[in-house]
Simulated scan of single mutants.
Amino acid sequence: MATGTDILDTIRTRLFTAVLGDVMDTRGLTRQFLPPAIRPIDPDTAPARVMAGRAMPVLEADCCGDVEWRGAGPGGGPGSGQGGGNPFPFGLMLRALDELQRDEVYVCTGGSPRYALWGELMSTRARALGAAGAVVDGFHRDTLGIRKLGFPVYSHGSYAQDQRMRGRVIDFRCPIEFGNGVRIDPGDVVVADIDGVVVVPADHAADIVALALEKVEGEESVRQMIERGERTEDIFGKTGIM
């Protein structure tokens, strides 16, 4: 099975979240879907192809006021050994955004639903860097501007309240965990479509994609059996697919 960008291309063109989730269930990876409240920015016009990329996890935290954190100099700051002080009221958010790489997905959790975690200018920067999309465990804003950009964003919905003075990024490229127990590590494969967002652990990605391709082929055979008028109970007995 191909690796790297070939895996992402295969997912984008031939697979979808449901089949990946089904295959992971059979391999004991049963808690891989993010909360169902996380949806595409506009379900009615979601792209036909799925969004897929490597996770750049981002950890948010609530705060109160526009107070800067001041580090202890080189090596003294938080954030994956980034070091130094932090002169920005958004914490490490701008640094995390600037360090997005091609085909990465900005995946953020940790704050409360009192403010937006993503917006149009962030989408503009992420798209310019070749990022695959953004998935936030909270709200986005600037909906019309993001729609015009066509940048894939998945969130709990739209809410215009700014995160400045209310939340800040405290770390990135670190393991994070969503409220439903789904863990995301840097480099995991994040796949999203109109049915939800699923995470494929990096160590299992090649095997899961290969098995998902087999399942898609099997489902096509089952569809043909149904169209021929066969009973679904009999079909499942023969194929184990439904």
Rank of each mutant, 00 (worst) to 15 (best):
Y106M: 10
P78C: 00
G130A: 13
G77N: 00
Y159P: 00
R70W: 02
G130F: 13
G119P: 03
D25W: 01
P78M: 00
R114F: 04
R228N: 12
T232Y: 09
R95W: 04
I176E: 12
G240K: 02
V19G: 05
P36F: 11
C174E: 14
L144Y: 04
P89Q: 09
I11K: 03
D103A: 07
Y115A: 15
V19N: 04
A202T: 00
G28A: 06
D137H: 10
Q224K: 15
L149Q: 12
G196V: 04
H204T: 06
A18W: 01
G81T: 04
V105M: 14
E104F: 12
P175Y: 02
Q163W: 03
V19S: 09
F151T: 08
A205C: 13
I184Q: 13
D44T: 13
S80Y: 03
A205K: 09
F16P: 00
G110F: 09
F151Y: 14
D98M: 15
A131Y: 09
R114E: 06
G73E: 00
V23N: 02
Q101P: 03
I11D: 02
D66K: 14
Y154D: 08
G130I: 09
Q163D: 04
V189F: 10
V58N: 09
P175W: 05
I7Y: 02
L121H: 12
S123P: 03
Q82Y: 11
G218E: 05
D22A: 07
V67H: 14
A52N: 08
P35A: 00
Y159T: 00
I184W: 12
V23E: 03
Y154W: 14
W69C: 01
F178D: 12
G218I: 05
I235K: 01
L97R: 04
A131P: 08
R114W: 06
R147H: 15
A52P: 09
D188E: 07
D62Q: 03
Q101D: 12
P201K: 00
S155C: 10
G91A: 15
P57D: 12
T143S: 14
L144T: 11
L20W: 00
Q161H: 04
G4L: 06
F139D: 04
V135H: 10
P35F: 03
W118K: 05
V200S: 07
D207Q: 15
P113T: 01
R14L: 03
V107W: 10
Q82G: 07
H140M: 02
G218F: 10
G85Y: 00
F178W: 07
P113I: 07
R31G: 13
D137K: 05
G84N: 04
V19D: 06
G75Q: 02
G187P: 12
G237Q: 08
V199K: 12
T45M: 05
L34D: 15
F90G: 13
D193Y: 09
G75L: 07
M1W: 01
I235D: 10
V190K: 14
L20D: 02
L100C: 11
Y115L: 10
L149N: 11
P186M: 05
G65A: 06
R173M: 15
M1R: 00
S123E: 12
A48W: 01
P43A: 11
